[in-house]
Design a protein around this nucleic acid. Structure first.
Lengths: 226, 226
DNA sequence: GAGATTAGTGTCAGTCGCTGACAGTTGACA
DNA sequence: TGTCAACTGTCAGCGACTGACACTAATCTC
């Protein structure tokens, strides 16, 4: 009842539409308040006042103050999973994950815009990275995500997760780098989607060399922010 | 005033000793309650009742309920940083990190025992991994740690963190694998230090192969739990 | 050793996130 | 149209946490 699975399904009844409107209003009001005056500085009362519903209603739509923040993130992640499932078996696990993220980012734009302005979502992401308690929640979600991805990779390669460390290890390394780029992008001034994309690609390219240990030569692509 | 820097410094005055005793008592009582009846199920009131101090006092010693849980972890981490600084420059960054963890684990035992029974600390760690809110906090701390380690590695290799992705990338991959082993160990029945050590070594060994992409052969060492 | 100083503590009241219980309202459907 | 179920509001309460203020006791000063 609090999940966001209205995957392009325009609601049928009046009741459904009303619910959806309330939820969207709460979501937008919350993100607006969070990004302008800060997450911790915003109380649930302020959010419900803006939408003119009771606090109790807020907690019926969202599991908590935190859950609002990650509503959009949820969509992006499930899209990534979808893309990953569709990657051809010829790609290495690492390649597959890499392309799945980039494809997901390419195609998720409109779906986000239908819910909130993309620009608001970008600011939300930067807020997550700069708010300790949200960063914590983000990381916990990331752990759950890794577990899911590792399962997919193991399945893809017909391996037993319990016996073969490689799926988990590969996923951990991949997600680790993804988190680093996310953090750096969050800190940077340029909050554009393009900068995130190039930053991500650059960093992923460095994984192999970084582990090899021959750090004498200069890194491959070094034009980025921070 | 709430930090735990009594690094083998036996407190001088009566006041200092009293403080230390109160803090230790709170720490032990809290961990005991947490590990027996669960973190969320334990209230701060229960903890302070066990030690017979006021709630206000608890919050003067620890920033929050959460902070108690990670008090010992703090010691282990600062020990790791110490060990990492001492690794010879001839080792690759990855090697250095790997050995630093293992050395830290070897030498931290007594320091922990001085504070709480090591066995209690082990159970605490497993509790962290199995309690969502604590896992979140653990991950946030991990992020801060990664940043610090990346700084050390960059310094060690005379690189500019802002220009060269490799320190952050290598650290992200390393810490990612460390987290995976921590999770698996937390879930396993065998909560011994030895099992954690061998699990960690096995998984770290798989990082290179896992990224290479030639997953046809069977993994190197596969004897582990889960 | 007595008094002044100050760190440490307890008490109290209040905020904020969140939940259960119960009652009122409003779409849905026969 | 009336019944049913879903949705919402109100209220009361819990638990984590904080600020203010008074009190106790270790330390310092003379």
């Amino acid at each position: 009842m609090t999940d966001g699975r209205q995957v392009a399904g325009l609601p049928t009844g009046l009741r459904e539409r009303k619910k959806r409107r309330t939820r969207d209003a709460l979501l937008r009001a919350a993100l607006d308040l969070f990004t302008t005056q800060g997450y911790e500085e915003t109380t649930v009362d302020e959010i419900v006042d803006a939408v003119e519903v009771s606090q109790r209603t807020f907690f019926r739509y969202f599991a908590g103050k935190e859950a609002v923040v990650f509503a959009v993130q949820d969509m992006v992640e499930s899209r990534f999973i979808l893309e990953l499932r569709q990657r051809p078996a010829t790609e290495t696990p690492f390649e597959a994950m890499r392309r799945a993220v980039l494809c997901a980012w390419n195609s998720i734009g409109e779906a986000i815009e239908a819910l909130v302005p993309v620009e608001l979502h970008m600011r939300t992401y930067q807020m997550i990275e700069s708010t300790p308690s949200l960063l914590a929640a983000h990381m916990r979600r990331s752990v759950a995500m890794e577990e899911q991805i590792a399962g997919l990779i193991a399945e893809r390669e017909s391996l037993d997760l319990a016996r073969d460390p490689r799926p988990r290890v590969a996923v951990a390394a991949f997600c680790g780098v993804m988190r680093v780029t996310g953090q750096l992008w969050g800190r940077s001034c340029d909050g554009s989607m393009d900068s995130l994309r190039t930053l991500t690609e650059t960093y992923l390219d460095q994984l192999g060399p970084a582990l090899a240990g021959d750090w004498r030569g200069r890194p491959a692509g070094t034009a980025h922010l921070n």
